[in-house]
Structure formats: C-alpha cells, structure tokens
C-alpha cells in the first residue's frame, strides 16, 4: 500500500447546535501536516456548515466560517456537497461559501473547490476513499 491515503471527512451535522462540525474542522487543520489526499463531503445537515452569512456575534458562539474559507491552504483539495441534501433544504450552490485553492509548487489555481455533486457521485467518491472520518 502506498503511503498516501485518500482521506474523506464526512460531515453530516449542522454547525453551532453541537461542537461536532467545529472539532472535525480542527482534525482537518491538523491533518494538513500529513501528506495525504484530503476531501470533505457535506451531506444531510452538514450542508449547513457551508452556508454564507452566518453571524454568531449575538449568540457568543465561535464563528468558524472564516476557517472553512482557508481550507484550501490546509491541504484540502476537494469539498463536495450532496445535491439532494442541498435541494431538500431549499438551498443552491449560490448559498454556499467559496473556497479557493492553489498548489504552491505548480502554481495551479482553482477559484472554488466547493462542488455540488449528485448522489451517484457521492457514492463513488466515498467508495474510492481509503479512510472515512465521521464525527
């Protein structure tokens, strides 16, 4: 087995109501120090983690939305969103934040690595991962 594994972080929970979203994000940030191929999958209520316009100032919760926007700098190459979960919640890709990515060595750039995919693609992406982290 090669040393590079395909990691997928599976996010199925809404932010703020519980700490799972924030603490799983911390794993992703720490994981950047390891040279793995990393993707994030947002499904079910997890799609709410990427919704624009969150303001936690009055609730006194930690606002970790800015952290998502920096994930491209933390080795995350792909952020997938399950289309059916998004549509079921009355949302579209326009409601979601954008996350840029750049390969510092090759200078390859991607304006937005957040990609809405259909169920068949979700299944395929999860199946081809080596490790799926759940929180």
């Amino acid at each position: 087995m090669s040393d590079i594994k395909k990691f997928m972080y599976l996010n199925r929970r809404a932010p703020y109501g519980t700490i799972y979203a924030w603490e799983s994000l911390e794993v992703v940030l720490i994981g950047a120090a390891f040279d793995q191929e990393v993707s994030l999958m947002f499904a079910d209520d997890g799609v709410y983690q990427l919704v624009k316009g969150c303001d936690t100032s009055e609730s006194d919760m930690k606002n970790f939305m800015p952290t998502y926007r920096t994930l491209g700098d933390y080795g995350v190459r792909y952020m997938y969103v399950d289309q059916a979960s998004l549509e079921a919640r009355g949302l579209t890709a326009d409601d979601l934040i954008e996350v840029a990515w750049e390969d510092w060595e090759t200078e390859e750039e991607v304006d937005n690595i957040v990609e809405v995919v259909d169920s068949a693609k979700v299944t395929e992406l999860m199946a081809e991962s080596d490790v799926v982290f759940s929180f």
């Binding site: 080596d130 490790v131 799926v132």
Partner: peptide, 8 residues
C-alpha cells in the same frame, strides 16, 4: 470489507 464508514 474494504473499510468501515460510521453513519451516525
């Protein structure tokens, strides 16, 4: 199996 996914 190939791997285990926890659907919590």
């Amino acid at each position: 199996t190939d791997k285990t996914q926890a659907w919590l």
